[in-house]
Computed example of a mutant assay.
Amino acid sequence: MSKREYIIANRKWLEDKAKEEGVKALPKGIYYKVLKEGKPNGAQPQRRSIVTVHYTGWTIDGRKFDSSRGSTPIAMRLSDLIDGWIIALQQMHVGDEWELYIPAEMGYGKFSQPGIPGGSTLIFDIELIGVA
């Protein structure tokens, strides 16, 4: 598959996923499905917050490229992360677990990362554990 075909396949996958039952839209072409709801009045991160999460990331072909599960949750400053995470996590409450679908433009764009070809739609299972 050529780079162009790969990018088109990733966009089509996201368009199809957006039509599935239970999938909700966020700004900038990001979609999510709620896997577990935390407290509706639980803390929500701001852009400069330190977030503690468990996560697993896949490409659309089911290849896992990263995960914190099986070890200690990761604590990171939200503003240091990819745009898709910054936008989505600010909508989450502590205790929420979402499956997040991030278009390439809100992830790594045309740049490849280890295990992630450029142009990839990213899928993450993210559980927001804490906000500081």
Rank of each mutant, 00 (worst) to 15 (best):
M1N: 15
M1R: 06
M1P: 10
K3R: 09
R4Y: 05
E5D: 15
E5A: 07
E5T: 15
Y6I: 11
I7G: 00
I7Y: 04
I8P: 14
I8N: 06
I8Y: 08
N10Y: 02
R11F: 13
R11V: 10
K12Y: 09
K12D: 13
K12R: 11
W13E: 03
W13A: 06
W13G: 12
L14P: 11
E15Q: 15
E15G: 15
E15H: 15
D16R: 09
K17E: 08
K19P: 05
V23E: 02
A25H: 04
L26R: 00
K28L: 14
I30L: 13
I30S: 06
Y32M: 03
V34A: 04
V34F: 04
L35T: 08
N41F: 08
N41W: 13
Q44K: 05
P45D: 06
Q46V: 12
R48Q: 12
R48M: 02
R48P: 05
S49M: 11
S49E: 14
S49Y: 09
I50K: 08
V51M: 00
Y55D: 09
Y55P: 15
T56I: 01
G57Y: 02
W58H: 13
W58D: 03
T59K: 03
T59G: 11
T59N: 03
I60K: 02
I60Y: 00
D61L: 10
D61I: 05
G62N: 05
K64L: 11
K64H: 08
K64F: 04
F65C: 06
F65T: 05
S67P: 13
S67A: 14
S68W: 04
R69H: 07
R69M: 02
R69E: 15
R69I: 02
G70A: 11
S71C: 15
T72E: 12
P73Q: 12
P73M: 12
I74L: 10
A75F: 05
M76D: 10
R77C: 00
R77D: 05
D80W: 02
D80L: 04
L81A: 09
I82E: 04
I82G: 06
D83N: 07
W85G: 11
I86W: 01
I87R: 00
A88K: 02
A88P: 14
L89S: 14
Q90F: 02
Q90S: 08
Q91S: 14
M92Q: 14
V94Q: 05
G95F: 06
D96R: 01
A104P: 03
M106I: 11
M106N: 12
M106E: 05
M106K: 07
G107F: 05
G109C: 04
G109T: 03
G109N: 02
K110Y: 07
Q113R: 10
Q113S: 07
P114L: 00
P114C: 02
P114R: 01
I116T: 00
G118D: 13
T121W: 03
T121A: 07
L122H: 01
I123F: 11
F124H: 12
D125L: 02
D125K: 01
I126F: 15
L128A: 04
G130C: 05
A132P: 01
